[in-house]
Design a protein around this nucleic acid. Sequence first.
DNA 1: GCTCGTATAATTGTATACAATTATACGAGC
DNA 2: GCTCGTATAATTGTATACAATTATACGAGC
Lengths: 229, 229
Amino acid sequence: MANYDVKTEVSDKFSLRGRVYHKIREDILSGIYKDNEELREVAIGEELGVSRTPVREAFRQLELEGLIQIIPNKGAYVTGITVKDVQDIYMMRSKLEGLAARWATENISDEQMNEMEENIYLSEFHASKGHMEQITNLDNRFHEILYEACNSKMLQHQLQDFHEYVLRVRKRTLSENKRSAASTEEHKEIMEAIKAKDADRAELAANRHIVNAYENMVKNGLYEAYERG
Amino acid sequence: MANYDVKTEVSDKFSLRGRVYHKIREDILSGIYKDNEELREVAIGEELGVSRTPVREAFRQLELEGLIQIIPNKGAYVTGITVKDVQDIYMMRSKLEGLAARWATENISDEQMNEMEENIYLSEFHASKGHMEQITNLDNRFHEILYEACNSKMLQHQLQDFHEYVLRVRKRTLSENKRSAASTEEHKEIMEAIKAKDADRAELAANRHIVNAYENMVKNGLYEAYERG
DNA sequence: GCTCGTATAATTGTATACAATTATACGAGC
DNA sequence: GCTCGTATAATTGTATACAATTATACGAGC
């Protein structure tokens, strides 16, 4: 269904290295490994039942992603992700999401436009029924459509990265309070601006949507919940 | 001199893996390896006089960076970087550079402010003398100062990444035409807005600066030169 | 008791061996 | 000549051996 062709991601989750990478990544993002904790190749290998080779390859990727720091001949240390990092990413994402909305206005296909309208229609329905899981999925999908419609491999890749980083926080936010209605309303605003070919309005609406999501998160104190892991 | 503490980069250029990584990366960005070209572990290892292990680790990093795509059990293929990618990155960078200028307005230290003023003073001097190498270095350093002053590990990391991506193109642009004077003037505008604590003006000036740099590049046809590699 | 140096252990860096998978060559059958 | 299947070669995936480096233990000397 979704077109993931252009996404650059660790391509196989089924190889040992892929599994190791995703496991360690998850454990860092969820706080199981604390800040500055040293990760040892053999220990992690034994825990997952693999040799050092896939662990080392996973480490190299995590290093590039900024989740760990490797000091040559010494060790790998968790960099983690702080409250300020999350805040900064939201603000960066706000700017780039605006750019995505602008470009989507110029490049969206009829098919994508239809899916976007349908997405909002369904969101409103499920919001009225309180179907939280569907709302979360539709919310995620809305952003994916936007990223695909902007027709930029680079921007799409970047925004998907940001999205993943904050996904854990965002999911809680949506499922634990009443923001979903406001969120759908903001999606609708973005969609209508795109449909009206008003790139300026689309950009601003997308900017605001992400800032609102962030502010809502702070207001609800879920931010601190995140910090505790 | 420069504070690279927070930068997440491949930490050692002197290990075999570090050398392999930088070599392949350079060869992709400079077009020695063409789009869709298959990279073989043994061949590259032999060329550089190393075994497959460091080559594989380098591949994993290049994959995450989006420069190659690894198809499991099959091979590694160069993704390259197209003209549109460069264009998109400039526009994305424009937005984030604006954010950096905004945050720098709020967070710049006296020391950083002084270095920024000095940087512009020196740039004007070297521009009047036509010292191209110094101008290029000062130009790079101006942006580094800005990234450091914004006080955001995340934003700094991102912008440094973008900067690296387009560095090869940008260097040519600066050294082959008369943009350097205009560029310095724009840096001065950003600096003065930051000094005046005018975040809005700083952001807009930084936005425009990157867009101007891009448009100049297109105007001078250096863009196509890039495409030919 | 404290500092320092050396021996030993632990850990990372790299090469290589072997298994698993994919690509290629080539001939049988039509 | 074309298609397909099988044997062989080439390539990647992972484990492991060994070298190089760093961490730790511990005792000599003060």
